[in-house]
């Protein structure tokens, strides 16, 4: 967690620095608020990184945290990565074939492979869900469902 915490803090600091640097290119009225908020935010983010590093060093000296190997990183983050791939898959499916079909395909595959439900149960839940979405949200409420770029 220590390494991940530091990476996130550094990325956040970089984003804030970029936002401040970009703000210098705006005219003075448009730049006022980003600079008034951004500069203290950069300072605080830098302080935060310093505090995190100090805390990690102290913990390392006490032997609380060991440098993690490549193998233990995969053990710790493998599940996380897998779930994020699922979510990314959902976004790609929705982008390609729309919310109704993309969402339905995702639900079926997720139930079958991740949730380890039986084939007929996965299929049944997916069909009920798609029908509910189509009838209630699309037909009754006339909600716009993203159609996808292929359909």
């Amino acid at each position: 967690m220590g390494k991940e915490k530091n990476i996130f803090a550094i990325v956040l600091l970089l984003i804030l620095i970029i936002m401040v640097l970009l703000a210098f290119g705006f005219n003075k009225f448009a730049a006022f608020m980003p600079l008034v908020i951004g500069i203290p935010a950069v300072i605080l983010a830098a302080v935060n990184i310093f505090v995190e590093f100090k805390h990690d060093k102290e913990a390392e000296q006490k032997g609380l945290e060991k440098t993690s190997s490549k193998f233990s990183w995969w053990v710790a983050h493998g599940d996380e990565l897998l779930i994020w791939f699922w979510v990314l898959g959902l976004v790609i499916l929705v982008g390609m074939i729309g919310v109704l079909w993309g969402g339905g395909t995702f639900l079926f595959l997720f139930l079958l492979f991740k949730s380890k439900q039986k084939l007929h149960i996965s299929l049944l839940i997916t069909i009920i869900f798609m029908l509910a979405i189509y009838t209630f949200l699309f037909n009754v409420l006339s909600l716009k469902l993203y159609p996808g770029i292929l359909l």
Partner: peptide, 20 residues
């Protein structure tokens, strides 16, 4: 694992209707 994909898709539909 049954609830999450359903909630995710409904959330996506809700988010999409912010500016379509």
């Amino acid at each position: 694992t049954i609830l999450a994909p359903i909630v995710l898709i409904i959330t996506m539909i809700g988010a999409f209707n912010a500016s379509r």
